[in-house]
């Protein structure tokens, strides 16, 4: 099934794209999708999304259907769902 993933803030700049479409298998989670994106892109995208242990950085914000998804709470993706990933930003 197709899942749309939107990149925001530093992640968008690192990925050099704002949106991508991912083929996700039935029963996979938002967290699985993000791990896949991190591994596929590698480099700066991976370092923004994953910590040294390969776990999602706890400060990455994930939203699905207008709700925040916490890394530690697996959330099954739905067909044609849009997932938004954003990295922390500040003022200045």
């Amino acid at each position: 099934m197709k899942v749309t993933v939107q990149f925001s803030a530093q992640l968008r700049a690192a990925a050099q794209e704002a949106v991508c479409t991912v083929d996700a298998t039935e029963g996979s989670t938002v967290q699985d999708v993000i791990r896949g994106i991190a591994e596929e892109h590698g480099g700066e995208v991976r370092s923004l999304l994953l910590d040294e242990a390969g776990e999602l950085s706890p400060s990455v914000l994930i939203f699905a259907d207008g709700q925040q998804v916490l890394w530690e709470a697996p959330c099954t993706v739905a067909p044609d769902q849009t997932v938004i990933i954003t990295t922390p930003i500040a003022g200045g």
Partner: peptide, 21 residues
Amino acid sequence: CLFPSDPPAWRRRFPVFGAVS
């Protein structure tokens, strides 16, 4: 709660327009 740890990749200087801020 939003950011449980200090974001290591954040930099003091970053691109932005005044109209956005």
